[in-house]
Design a protein around this nucleic acid. Sequence first.
DNA 1: GTCTATAGACGGATAGAC
DNA 2: GTCTATCCGTCTATAGAC
Lengths: 227, 227
Amino acid sequence: MPLRSIKPPHETRTRILDAAEELFMQHGFEGTSMRLLTAKAGANLAAVNYHFGSKDALIEAVFRRRLDAMNAQRIAELDRLEKEAGGRALSPNAIIRAFVGVSLRMIEDARDGGRNFIRLLGRTYSDPHKPIRALIGQLYAPAMARFKPAFERALPQMPRDELIWRLHFMFGTLAYTIAATDTVHLIAGCKPEDRYDARLLEARLTAFLEAGLLAPPHTAEDVKKAA
Amino acid sequence: MPLRSIKPPHETRTRILDAAEELFMQHGFEGTSMRLLTAKAGANLAAVNYHFGSKDALIEAVFRRRLDAMNAQRIAELDRLEKEAGGRALSPNAIIRAFVGVSLRMIEDARDGGRNFIRLLGRTYSDPHKPIRALIGQLYAPAMARFKPAFERALPQMPRDELIWRLHFMFGTLAYTIAATDTVHLIAGCKPEDRYDARLLEARLTAFLEAGLLAPPHTAEDVKKAA
DNA sequence: GTCTATAGACGGATAGAC
DNA sequence: GTCTATCCGTCTATAGAC
């Protein structure tokens, strides 16, 4: 058995990606220097350029590593549900769970750093930087193309533009929840005990999102009241 | 009438704050240099340190300028509603509108730059940087202290921990909505026409939030399903 | 209050030895 | 693949003239 270097748990490339997830989450992309990052990864400063080419390419690699797998998991889950249902339409509740469950379960995944990534992802949704937006949009496209028709089928009576906005709101609630779950104390005054119990959080969030998705449509009067 | 400098519409201090809102929104705090910022403001590089002391102090001033007024407006609106209602409890719908309306109306306010601030605010909610979090929490505290009891009174039957989570979700939906309203096309595939009609957006968002707030509580079975 | 000039630290990226 | 050394640009902040 060959001697292994002192460095692992993982290879340099992997350690850099792990460090990047944590530091980008904490300090943002521009606020994270390659010096700090490589130091945290136990790698040399030049290693980022050797393995990824540039800082920007590293950022892209960070998202590709996880998002493709996450969205594949969502689609597989939806496939499974539809197969189980035979020809019957799925409930909105089940479709919501298939989407949000993947993210929420990662909150608990402290072992391999999924928790860092999911929080990074949550804060990146509200980053207006164009290349980032384009990348995120591209990586989500397959899942969106699969879930939107599923919701349309589950809610055939809902106007399409209303549905789009409600999916948008749901997406936003999820994004904020995964980015800022540890700020509930802003509202509570103290931290609830269950904040990292993914199953309880999924039940709470799904109840909220399902009700919002199925809300009665707004009326012309509601629009007038908003003056 | 004395000759005015070529520089105004506003004073240097104001122009710096306006430029800061726009650039911080676009590039984040760390991604915005004082060189670019003062250039955009038509001011000298040294002006930031003269007027604010440091970059960090400028960041704080950017939030103080708007948030105190916004939250005072929210509280005044709630005062007015309660006075109108005499002793009767307010509807959750009305309380929600009093809170979200202030933010949503600013989305349309391109004239004095409120739109830039509101988008900056939306993305700052998911910034984990501790001093920023502390500042935001501090500036929101008076409004939170006023709105939480109002919701509790409107929903006396709802368990307190459930209410806290639902307020948290509502806060998050609003944050994402104001930060990323121009990304609906991610879901839609094309941009809806009404994205900047504040009244329509308020009606849509309020319908969603009210339903989520009033959702039936999750059951023990829901938690089990989330495995 | 506004300017120029500059200090002094830090940024990403690369060349070239091993 | 990994290292050291270094180029060169940018950063915040300040000193001091006007």
